[in-house]
Design a protein around this nucleic acid. Structure first.
Lengths: 151, 151
DNA sequence: ACATCTCGCAACAACAAAAGTTTCGAAATC
DNA sequence: GATTTCGAAACTTTTGTTGTTGCGAGATGT
């Protein structure tokens, strides 16, 4: 089952957007992601509707963040992408009246519910600013290395 | 994203198999699941390879459990189905050298890892006998109701 | 022996969901 | 008014899953 990597990609893009001047066009973002601008617009539409980014037409237009990274959590972006289900595995409801199925689905369902709550909690606890800080630390780590090419 | 319901269905089938006499043919199971016998064989092949069921050819043949339900956990069946990933959402690895991507994927990855460990723990803690017990309780509950059609 | 039932396997077809593409229009800037 | 850029709809391509067909092998019953 193929995995939905839109969340990962959008987080990546948003942090980069925070570090560049001016707007990023759909074309530029598409090249970053190895995809095409229409897909970018489709994906970012949710973020725009939820107020995390703004899009501007015409020369010099493109996408800009509308709030600081510290005010956006990973969960926010997940929800803005349409709150897709986290799980690739789920319960079957072939015979809702079958008590065996009910017992099975109750056990599976409560496990998935607990896992989902854990994920939601963790996603809500991490802001994009936290991720940017982590990036800074990784950068510092590398430039501090004696045999680093960048020094 | 469509969900993989094989685990749910196989658990359902195995508990029913424990409650019937003799072998269940792929055809019978397929009818239970509203699918066809080849798909059943394909799915059950993993359970056979891992030793939870045995298949017999010819007249009176079919599928039988090879051990008590108390010795099979939900996790066992999940693994027997090829240990498919639990998650529909995952990380993108477009630019492994990009430190932003690393920071993003580290945060996402650790959240998914924690959720996966939680699921594995819960799945390992439930045997099919537990599910069958739950079924029995649901049955007792219903037959005890004063206005139950079955009384 | 022979017919019948059943699984095993491989190849092929059908289907669904996601991603990619094309095309047009609208708004903003140069 | 020419160009840039997003917005949206329609269409095509791709990919993974599921369903189907066909043949062979083994087991049972007559």
């Amino acid at each position: 089952m193929r995995r939905d990597s839109r969340l990962s990609r959008m987080l990546h893009v948003l942090i980069h957007m925070d570090r560049i001047e001016g707007a990023a066009t759909s074309d530029q973002i598409a090249q970053m992601l190895g995809t095409n601008p229409v897909v970018v617009r489709r994906t970012m539409a949710g973020l725009r509707d939820d107020g995390y980014v703004h899009s501007e037409k015409g020369h010099g237009g493109g996408w800009v963040l509308t709030r600081p990274l510290s005010e956006i959590t990973m969960l926010d972006i997940h929800r803005a992408l349409g709150n897709p289900g986290f799980f690739a595995v789920g319960v079957a409801i072939d015979h809702p009246e079958c008590l065996v199925e009910q017992a099975v689905n109750s056990a599976l369902g409560s496990a998935f519910e607990a896992a989902e709550n854990l994920l939601i909690g963790k996603f809500a606890a991490v802001t994009l600013a936290d991720l940017a800080d982590d990036f800074d630390q990784r950068m510092a780590q590398i430039t501090a290395e004696p045999n680093c090419e960048l020094t």
